[in-house]
Design a protein around this nucleic acid. Structure first.
Lengths: 167, 167
DNA sequence: AAATGTATGTCAGAATACTTACATGGGTCA
DNA sequence: TGACCCATGTAAGTATTCTGACATACATTT
């Protein structure tokens, strides 16, 4: 093995006392776990989607579209946690590949309702089953009760972070 | 209100039948919750760090460095879930700001052990207390028991995703 | 009806992170 | 010792996403 793999036991507390200044193990920080898991999930999704010519953001967009047919660009952006501009770029690419369609001109307002094409739906079906396999693998160590508890807990964290600070 | 805020009750089942193909609510998908929470956390961290002239990745790097003084660039990259090149750029910028130091030449091997400067430590202290406030706010709705349970559950998910598939 | 406010779609430029690639240093093992 | 392998640091180019800006369309208010 290389010299980069040595153990770093910074958090080992030999005398058992709690130390205010001592850094807690990173693995006990939710934020760190979050980033770690997200990174791992993203990697697996990209891997499994690559054979289909899709990236994870593109898949997310298609999935949004299945749930909200005719959604606007801005709406999709909010649902995928990216900016309008990013979603716009994503949609352009998928329009060129005939996976989604958008009217050239808006019926009313400026909203251009986007929809999946039949080809887009077919590709999404294939992608979804692959992604589901990854998702299942991710939660496989958790029993049903734990899964719902974790999901609910994360929902509470989201709400706490998105709530206005103090006014 | 604008026309983008209409309700989209895609999963409302008017006839009460359960539909196999019907998409489950996004909020029940752990992957989606993960992305949502991560996005929210990142936003709050960037906000709170901006006054200090730090970005979230830079803060992560400094935090790593406190826990592993003298760590190599590659080691820091792995710990922060970015590529070596990205971490290299990050370190350059913080070297220029005299927050970290790296020897020009390696004692042995190619590893250039990085360390925090006193100024870096001071800035990190200020940053850490701000980040901790965000972190506390995030987990504030969770009791102690739930926190550890969630952290452990996420750890299991990480392991499941990172384990070699089947070979 | 005019003014105001808000949401949308889109362009341009900047920032960020990644992929590919290569040279170097140091272990491992025949 | 030499061949091999792996990890590191770094450069160049690409891809992705963001920030800032602007014009348009509708709703609301007065």
């Amino acid at each position: 093995m290389g010299q980069g793999s040595e153990s770093h036991d910074v958090e080992t507390d030999t005398d058992g006392r709690t130390n205010d200044a001592a850094p807690v193990a990173l693995e006990s920080h939710l934020g760190y776990q979050l980033k770690h898991l997200q990174t791992a999930l993203r990697s697996r999704m990209d891997e499994t989607l690559r054979p289909l010519g899709l990236t994870t953001p593109q898949y997310n967009c298609l999935e949004q579209l299945r749930r909200r047919p005719g959604a606007s660009n801005s709406e999709l952006a909010r649902g995928a946690f990216v900016t309008r501009q990013t979603m716009n770029t994503l949609l352009r690419g998928m329009q060129d590949r005939e996976l989604v369609t958008r009217p050239v001109k808006a019926d009313s307002g400026r909203v251009l309702p986007t929809r999946l094409t039949p080809a887009g739906e077919r590709l999404l079906d294939r992608a979804a089953s692959r992604v589901e396999a990854i998702s299942d693998r991710m939660v496989s160590p958790l029993d049903e009760e734990t899964r719902t508890m974790v999901t609910e807990a994360l929902g509470l964290c989201i709400a706490a972070l998105e709530a206005p600070e103090n006014g």
